[in-house]
Simulated scan of single mutants.
Amino acid sequence: MRRWWLRGAAGLAAASLLVSCFSNRQNEGEKLYATHCASCHGEQGEGLRRLIPPLAGADYLHQQRAALPCLIREGQQGPIVVNGVTFNQVMPGHDDLTDSQITNILNFVQQQWGNQNQTYTIREVSELLDACHGSDGQ
């Protein structure tokens, strides 16, 4: 009986560590977004009129899923269409972010402000970044 109790307690302790680990990663995405993205795309992903596209409720996040890691790493030039509106401003790249940090930003954006898009794995982001020679393997 005592062994069963100890196994149960150990399992609960491991589960609580995993939950805090994933919570911290989710919080990391929010913090990274605030640092690197919110000044242009807005604290609530609302964008800026017809100058900077919104991320909140943006069809682009789903339609261009495979391109998003490279877009963050390399930036964007030229017109894009988000929710039927054309935007044509330069977005700077963030080559200072690791693959892991890009994954956390993307997962934060994919699940915020009414977005309910599929999240990314680090492996998926690294593979997608290989297409633009942008993976750092971290």
Rank of each mutant, 00 (worst) to 15 (best):
Gln63Gly: 00
Ser23Ile: 04
Ala66Asp: 10
Gln76Leu: 13
Val82Asp: 02
His94Gln: 10
Gly84Leu: 04
Glu127Phe: 13
Trp113Val: 10
Asn88Thr: 09
Cys40Ile: 02
Glu30Phe: 06
Gln138Ser: 09
Cys37Phe: 02
Glu74Leu: 11
Ala10Met: 08
Arg49Met: 12
Val82Lys: 02
Gln101Cys: 07
Val82Pro: 03
Leu97Trp: 08
Asn24Tyr: 06
Ser39Met: 06
His41Lys: 08
Asp130Thr: 03
His94Leu: 04
Asn117Lys: 04
Thr119Gln: 15
Ser23Met: 09
Ile52Met: 15
Tyr60Lys: 03
Cys37Gly: 15
Gln138His: 08
Ala9Ile: 13
Asp59Gly: 11
Leu51Gly: 06
Leu12Gln: 02
Gln89Tyr: 08
Ala15Cys: 04
Asp59Lys: 11
Ala9Phe: 14
Arg123Gln: 14
Cys40Arg: 02
Gly47Pro: 09
Asp130Tyr: 01
Glu124His: 05
Gly11Gln: 04
Asn104Arg: 12
Leu48Asp: 08
Glu28Asn: 07
Gly134His: 14
Leu12Thr: 09
Asn24Lys: 01
Thr98Val: 12
Cys37Glu: 02
Glu28Trp: 12
Ala38Gly: 12
Ser126Ala: 15
Arg73Asn: 03
Asn117Gln: 13
Met1Pro: 08
Gly47Arg: 03
Thr121Glu: 14
Asn117Trp: 10
Gly114His: 12
Gln89Thr: 15
Ala10Phe: 11
Gln76Gly: 07
Leu17Glu: 04
Glu43Asp: 08
Asp96Leu: 11
Ser16Arg: 14
His133Arg: 12
Ala34Gly: 11
Gly75Asn: 06
Gln26Tyr: 11
Leu106His: 01
His62Gly: 05
Asp59Cys: 05
Gly47Phe: 12
Gly93Trp: 15
Pro69Met: 03
Ala66Gln: 03
Ala14Phe: 13
Gln63Thr: 06
Leu32Gly: 01
Pro54Glu: 01
Ser135Glu: 09
Asn83Arg: 10
Gly42Val: 15
Asp95Leu: 07
Val19Met: 07
Ala56Trp: 11
Val90Leu: 11
Asn83Tyr: 07
Leu106Thr: 02
Val82Met: 04
Gly8Pro: 05
Trp4Arg: 10
Arg49Ser: 11
Gln76His: 09
Phe22His: 02
Asp99Pro: 00
Leu51Gln: 10
Ala58Lys: 10
Val109Arg: 01
Ser16Thr: 15
His133Phe: 15
Gly78Ile: 09
Leu106Ile: 09
Leu17Ser: 06
Glu74Thr: 03
Glu28Ser: 08
Asp99Leu: 10
Glu46His: 02
Ala13Thr: 11
Glu46Leu: 06
Asp136Ile: 13
Asp99Arg: 10
His94Ile: 12
Gln63Ser: 12
Ala14Asp: 02
Leu97Ala: 06
Gly45Asn: 00
Arg65Phe: 14
Glu28Ile: 05
Asn27Thr: 04
Thr103Leu: 05
Gln77Lys: 08
Ala131Met: 15
Gly42Leu: 08
Asp136Ala: 04
Ser16Gly: 04
Gly57Asp: 05
Cys21Gln: 06
Ile80Phe: 02
Leu71His: 07
Ser100His: 08
Gln64Ala: 09
Gln118Val: 12
Thr86Phe: 10
Ala38Asp: 06
Asp136Ser: 02
Thr98Glu: 01
Asp59Ile: 10
His62Tyr: 05
Pro69Ile: 03
Trp113Gln: 05
Leu129Trp: 11
Val85Pro: 04
Arg25Gly: 00
Asp95Thr: 12
Arg3Cys: 03
Glu124Asn: 00
Leu129Thr: 09
Gly93Ser: 08
Glu28Pro: 00
